[in-house]
Design a protein around this nucleic acid. Structure first.
Length: 134
RNA sequence: ACCGCAAACCAUCCUGUCGUUCCGAAUAUAUUUCGGGAAGGAAAGUCCGGACAACGUAGGGCACCGUGCCAUCUAACGGAUGGUGCCGGGCUUCGGCUCGGUAAGGAAAGUGUAGCAGAAAAUAACCGCCCCAUUUCGAUGGGGUAAGGGUGAAAAUGUGAGGUAAGAGCUCACGAUUAUUCCUAGUAAUAGGAGUAGUGUAUAAACCCCACGGGUUGAAAUGUCAUGUACACCGGCCUUCCCAAUUUUGGGAAAAAGGGUGGCUCGCCCGAUGCCGGGGGGUAGGCAGUUAAAGCAUCGGUGUGAACUGGAUGCGUAGAUAAAUGACAGGACGAUCCAUAUAUGGAUUGACAGAAUCCGGCUUAUCGGUUUGCGGUAUUU
RNA sequence: GGCUGCAUAGUUCAAUUGGAUAGAAUAUCAGAUUUCGGCUCUGAGGGUUGGAGGUUCGAGUCCUCCUGCGGUCA
């Protein structure tokens, strides 16, 4: 393969969609907090092949944000932050298998995109340190 | 020009970069490229009404739920429009005019309730007034009486005259008010007039009566494909007659247990490798439904109006499913604050809010702007 | 996307068929008792009955519309 251009896309294959997988993730997955985010992740067994290195989902509690507008906005900001920064994780992962991940927003207040992106970068670094580098 | 009220409409805009989703075309099946579409007036609350779908279709009665002045509009409505009555405000030449509200059938079919106060709260005698009897002359007992008294949200039609022992619609006159009959106006609610019978408190968002309407369940409906399983296990019920055949099979008739028909009942229907119940197991994925106007706007015509008409012109249809419609940068516009000092500069900021089968309403949230109408104030001509 | 229930002192609950100034326990505060504190006794404060309208002479209670918090579904 030639030098791959870093693509900032986020298509259906990269989204966490299967109800079964999500149930399994919350039942058996590991998690760590990185305010205002919480990662829940699970290594996908090799027999269930998955095209993309990570299938990602985002979640915002209905108790913390009553209005659907606010929930949607936070999820959109999270998706955007992930889209622009996921390549850093992909580089490190190489061939070390694939993961299902759900990121939960735990703060009670909305953030600006700028701040949220910083937090996302930090949490990706932590994920690499904790899971990939061992 | 400013202020207030009401109604209708709009709901920040533009450019660039990076993305999401659907449709179409090409490439040729990992994809990539091009073109086009992509939230709302409330998408919300789920308060009503429909469309559509499934089940049922043999209906009747009861129960239950909803609505409640009249007419019209509408696919339909508990919605809207116009009117009538009632209530409240304003003006008034006192006749009315105008604005707003109105769950507005029946209390003269029956039942219940009306605390405290008051003699008495719906078959009203405490004080007072009058009559009769008794009397120790203080009064006591019996009866009549709703004119006077205070209480209370509410006290039994108001005023005057006659009448009476005292009084009383007991009688009369002028009113008030209710029911009903007739006449006039109106499609009608109702209004006006005349006659008759009355004076019957309030409450039906207390029970209730009357009239009208309502089958139930809602896209997690429903159909279909795939996966999976098992005529598995436990308990209950499994009738009678006739014919052929011959030891359980076929046909026919009746009908039991049981089941269905929304809750009850009558009635009806089903009913033998079957029916009902229990407990357990499996799958909770794909596709269809699923993206179309009971279309919209302007002009014309009809109507007081809600609306209708389809004559003309133009516009136009989001389809996701852990759920798309976004992020960043720059500019314009608006708002707030600060500074200079009336035009610029700086900072902050952009209402309410996000489709989930689709429509018509209602209700609630909403920074600001535009238009129209009405009223008020000031100035000019 | 539907269906359904609840809301009363800081907290847990009452309030008859609509009737007067919405009660009780606990918590809080003050006083008494004690060397001091606890226990105990006495007293006080604390409520727009979730909000706004309506019916009624009179609403915690009845009706309508909102707000908030639960429960449930194939």
């Amino acid at each position: 393969m030639k030098e791959e251009k870093t693509k900032f896309t986020f298509k259906k294959e990269e989204k966490l969609k299967k109800r079964k997988v999500i149930d399994l993730l919350f039942k058996k997955g590991k998690s760590f907090p990185q305010y205002p985010l919480r990662w829940v992740y699970l290594k996908v067994p090799p027999e269930e092949e998955q095209k993309m290195p990570v299938q990602m989902g985002f979640s915002v509690s209905k108790k913390r944000f009553k209005k659907a507008v606010n929930r949607n906005r936070i999820k959109r900001l999270l998706r955007e932050a992930w889209r622009l920064n996921k390549h850093k994780l992909y580089k490190q992962m190489a061939e070390s298998g694939s993961y299902s991940v759900m990121i939960i927003y735990t703060s009670k207040e909305e953030m600006k995109f700028e701040d949220l992106e910083k937090k996302m970068k930090k949490s990706i670094k932590r994920f690499i340190k904790q899971e990939i580098d061992q």
